[in-house]
Amino acid sequence: MPKYGMVIDLNKCSSCQACVTACKIENNVQIVSEYDAQHGRAMFWMKMLTMEFEGDYPNIRPKTLPRNCMQCDEPSCIKVCPVRATYKNEVGIVAQIYPQCIGCRYCMANCPYTVKVFNWDRNEQPKEVEKCYDPDVSVRPKGVVEKCTFCIHRLQIASEKAKAEHRDMEPGDYVPACVETCPVDAISFGDLDDKKSEVSKESRDYRSFALLDELGTVPKVRYLNAIE
């Protein structure tokens, strides 16, 4: 079984936020009302974070990074889920089962990366967005927690296609929407166990680091430091 992982090269990333939009439209993530957005309920699975500013003005650089679900190998969210609505599946993706979730938000409280978002309100979308729903992904009702799933529906479709064509999955068959969209190919995606894959090479690069590595969550999303 492959173990899917992602490496985001901060040296290449130009903070254009295409991954954020791609994620939003690929996964039918709810657009919340003006009131909700201003009260901290905007929903983004992929988010552009400004971590800190390095240096003093004018030799100052913000450290920005796109942050999606880290798809931890030792996820702290699944430990606390009382109903098995979130769990790690055989390919290492931490999946979220929306029809199972009771909305207790314990996983949100326990995620050190704050990647989980909650449907605080009824899903009432603008007309133009409703018509652009991705039919591969459900539209979550209110009251459930959701998060990045590495576009697991794309994995289903890709594996199905590969099986129908009587072949094995090939590296390029399944990539999440953010990876596909990234204009500068800053995000590489693939099988971490395959030592020859680009993502596994990059994850062992001297520049590579994981967010909050000290917590022992073993994220499968790693970053490559920017070269100064």
Partner: peptide
Amino acid sequence: TDCSHCHR
């Protein structure tokens, strides 16, 4: 019978 194979 992996949930994520059908639920999404």
